[in-house]
Simulated scan of single mutants.
Amino acid sequence: MSTTKTVDGRSAETSALITPGRRTRRVRRPGRRSTTFIVAPLSFIAIAVVLFALFFVWPGALGLWYSFTDYTGVGTPEFIGADNYVELAQDPDFYAVLGRTFLYTVLSVPLHFIAALGIAVLLTSTLAKGKSVARIIFFLPWLISPIVAGVIWKWLFGENFGMVNFLIEAFGGNGLNWETDPTLALLLILVVSTWGGTAFNMLLFIAAIRNIPQSYLEAAQLDGANGWQRFYRIVLPLLRPTSFMVILLTTIGSMKEFAMVQALNGGGPGTSNMFMVQYIYRTGFERADVGYASAASMVLMVILIIIAIIQLRFDKRNDLA
C-alpha cells in the first residue's frame, strides 16, 4: 500500500490513525483579512474625508483663527484676543440683524412644513389625478439656483417694471411697493423661499407616507374614522421622525439664507430685511473687516449648534414619552 506524505512528513495513513474522527482545524492567520476590512472602507470614504477636511474643517479652523485677529483680507493678521467678540456684543446692528433672522426663521419654517406636507398628502392620495406631472411641476423650483430664482421673482414683483404690478394696474388697481415697503419685501422673501424649498421636503414626506402600512388606515376606516381623523390620529404621528428632520433642516437653512435674498432685494429696503449671512458678507467683503465677520460667523455657528441640540433633546424626550 502506497502512502502519501503530508506537509509535516507524516503519511496520510499514520495521520488518520493518530487523529481518528477529528476535523482538522484551519488556523486563521490574522493580518491580511483584517487589513482588508479596514482598508476597503477607508478607500471608499477617503475622497469624502479629504473634501470635508479641505472645504469644511480647514475653512472653519481658519475662520476661528481670524475671529481673534484684526485681519482685513490683505497683509498679515495680528492677534487681538476677544476684542471682536466684545465689540460684537456691543453692536446694536448685530442684534437687529439677529432679530430679523429669527423672525424670518419663525415665519419660514411653518410655511415650508405646511406646504411640503400638504403637497405630499395630495400627491399620495388615491383620488388625485395627474400625479406624475404634478411631481415634476412641484420639483422644478428646487432645481433652479437660488440666485436665478431671486432674479426671476424680482422681475415679476418689480415696482416699476414687474409683471404683477402691471396686471394689478391693468385691472384698475394701484401697484404695490414690493421693494420699498419692508413688510411686503419680507412677505415676498417668504413666498420665494417657500416656493424654492418645498420640493425637497415634499419628497421626504412622500417617502414617509408610502412607508405607512395601509392596514392601519384600512382598520381605522372600518372603525368609522373619516379622512381627517385617519390623518391626524395615524399618519401625522407616524410622520414624526420625518417631520423632525424637515423642521431641523429648514431651521438651519432659514438661519443661513443668503443667495436668494441677495438677488431678490439685497436685504432691503435699506437694511430692514438683512439677515445674518448678509451681515457677515457685507462686513467681511464690503467693509474689509474679515476678523469681525469671522467672529459673527462663529456666533452664528454656535447658535445653530444650540438650536440643533435643543431640537434633538426635544425629539428624544418625545420618543421616551
Rank of each mutant, 00 (worst) to 15 (best):
I114Y: 12
D289N: 15
N84R: 08
Q278A: 06
G130Q: 02
Q311W: 05
A296K: 12
I310G: 01
F138R: 08
V235L: 08
A199W: 04
L51Q: 09
A149M: 11
L184V: 12
V7N: 11
I234F: 05
I209M: 15
A288W: 11
V39F: 07
I45S: 09
A128W: 03
I152P: 03
A134G: 00
L176D: 05
L236Y: 06
F138K: 07
T180A: 13
R29D: 12
R10W: 14
E218Y: 02
R100D: 00
I280E: 08
S108C: 07
I136K: 02
T250F: 04
A116C: 10
A96V: 08
F314V: 15
S67I: 06
M202Y: 08
S67A: 13
T242C: 04
D289Q: 13
F56N: 13
P237S: 00
P141M: 02
I247G: 00
W195F: 07
L238E: 06
R317M: 13
Q229N: 10
R230V: 03
Q229G: 06
D70N: 11
M1Q: 12
R287N: 15
D289P: 04
P20A: 04
V277N: 04
D8K: 12
V97N: 02
L167T: 13
F79W: 15
T283N: 03
P146K: 01
L304V: 14
W142E: 06
A199E: 02
G21Q: 09
I45E: 01
N201H: 13
F52G: 00
D8T: 14
V191F: 15
T36A: 08
G63E: 13
G31A: 02
V299A: 10
M260T: 09
L188T: 14
T194F: 05
T72R: 15
Y85F: 15
G268V: 03
I136E: 04
T24L: 07
G270S: 10
Y85K: 10
T251E: 02
A89L: 13
G60M: 08
R23C: 02
I119W: 03
H112F: 09
T6M: 14
G130V: 04
A321C: 09
L176A: 12
G158V: 06
N165S: 12
I189G: 01
N177S: 13
G60T: 11
T124L: 00
L312P: 02
G175T: 01
F275W: 07
T250M: 04
S297G: 13
P182H: 12
G172M: 10
N318Q: 14
G196N: 09
I38H: 00
P241H: 01
L88G: 09
G267V: 00
F79S: 11
F231I: 03
S193W: 09
W142P: 01
K5T: 15
R230F: 02
L238P: 07
F138N: 07
F52C: 06
G158I: 07
P59V: 00
T101C: 00
N226Q: 10
F231T: 08
T271P: 03
I147A: 03
H112N: 14
A225K: 13
L156M: 08
K129Y: 09
V164D: 06
A96G: 08
R28S: 11
K129F: 10
L320W: 11
G172W: 10
L217C: 03
Y281E: 07
S2Q: 10
T14P: 03
R100G: 02
L249W: 00
A48R: 05
F166V: 09
T242S: 07
L127G: 00
L238S: 08
A96S: 13
R240I: 03
N84I: 10
